[in-house]
Amino acid sequence: MKPTCEELAADIASGRIERLGWLDRLRHRLHAWLCPPCRQYQKQVDSIGTLARQRADDGAPCPEALEAMKRRCLERVKGPATRGPADDAEVCPDSD
């Protein structure tokens, strides 16, 4: 059956699947529907993206700290005039 499992897996991993025409997409979808290993492969690859997005927020500074960073950045880029009165409020309220 076209695409083969190998072709489908390659299209999934490279992101080429997003640029396919509707007929090829349909073929891919049909293949995945009929083929548990390909469906599993697709879900595993998708879940890597989800995990990466979750991981990006792991240990990220809290909003207050980010705001303080932003202010420091503006201060450096534009000069100290942008310094605000709440510049020291970067400690996160619920941080340890």
Partner: peptide, 24 residues
């Protein structure tokens, strides 16, 4: 690469292992 996971016809020789998706 994935090449050694498929046979000559492009079918899974060594299918993905484990859960359908990785555990979040």
């Amino acid at each position: 690469q994935l090449a050694d996971r498929f046979d000559d016809d492009g079918l899974w020789l060594h299918p993905p292992q484990g859960p359908e998706a990785f555990v979040y």
